[in-house]
């Protein structure tokens, strides 16, 4: 039974969201499979695309780095490739999430189902994408003779945290996007700038390793959660210890969780109003 009142309760919002996801998990699956089908059925290379794009970027940055830097990173191709995969998980979840409501206006005006499904389906789709793309690193792991270690547990942890971070922001930007279409452009610029400011095609060590004064490096880690998460994904495969102070780690993770929480409250309280703008 559908029951609607004027007010959405404040604290229960995230729990309501979780309840909706469980109730509509069939539809969520449908949306994710739809995206996969559309992506793979209508192209000749199909799966190849999820591998080719990160590979091409990796080769570019590898060559660029070989020319520009004298830094000796033993696993450089792996470092770059994992950085790019982790970043695209974040960037695509955020940018697709931001336009999630606006681009589905015709559907939203036709039938009701919880609108957060538009965001979660994009997130789920990107998680499947990164899982599929990760197969390309197998040759590199063999080349460097890297066997799985206990650090591998960091991979799912980081993937979930990156998704929560991107969704936390997308909860807010997707609502704002219904009011002003400028938001998606702001998000695009923000993503492009932070691509270079995050350790995507260079190791975190470039910043924390002494080139930058220590107090700045510490601030950098606090305001850029992606720096931590990308490094987690790298450590998961190289087995290298996570060279980040525990208090920084604790701050980054808890702020991501809080952002996700607040974002979901904002979304649940505003989506009903926002769809009137569509």
């Amino acid at each position: 039974m559908l029951e609607l009142q004027a007010k959405t309760p404040f604290f229960s919002a995230p729990f309501k969201m979780y309840g909706n996801l469980r109730k509509y998990k069939e539809l969520l699956k449908h949306f994710i499979f739809r995206d996969l089908k559309v992506r793979y059925h209508n192209s000749f290379i199909g799966y190849g695309w999820s591998v080719l794009e990160p590979l091409a970027l990796t080769i570019t940055f590898y060559i660029l780095f070989a020319i520009l830097s004298d830094d000796v990173d033993p696993y450089r191709p792996l470092t770059i490739l994992l950085g790019i995969l982790a970043w695209s998980l974040f960037a695509k979840t955020l940018s697709l999430g931001t336009i999630g409501l606006q681009r589905n206006a015709s559907l939203i005006k036709r039938v009701y189902f919880p609108r957060e499904l538009f965001l979660f389906s994009k997130s789920g789709y990107q998680i499947i994408q990164i899982s599929l793309s990760l197969f390309v690193i197998i040759p590199l792991l063999i080349k460097y003779e890297l066997a799985p270690t206990r650090m591998l547990i960091l991979l799912p942890v980081a993937v979930i945290l990156i998704s929560m971070l991107a969704l936390g922001v997308a909860f807010i930007t997707s609502i704002l996007q219904t009011k002003a279409r400028d938001i998606e452009h702001i998000v695009t610029i923000f993503l492009r700038i932070s691509f270079y400011l995050s350790p995507v095609f260079y190791p975190l060590d470039m910043i924390t390793g002494g080139r930058v004064p220590e107090e700045y490096a510490s601030i950098y880690l606090l305001i850029n959660p992606m720096a931590t998460y990308i490094t987690m994904i790298r450590s998961a495969f190289t087995g290298a210890p996570l060279d980040i102070p525990v208090e920084n780690l604790a701050f980054t993770i808890s702020s991501t969780v809080v952002l996700f929480w607040l974002g979901s409250i904002y979304f649940m309280r505003n989506e009903r109003k926002a769809v009137k703008n569509l």
């Binding site: 039974m1 009142q5 009701y112």
Partner: peptide, 13 residues
Amino acid sequence: AGIYAPDNGSIKV
């Protein structure tokens, strides 16, 4: 249809 939520009052379907 549940597409718009009321700003006042309530609806049950």
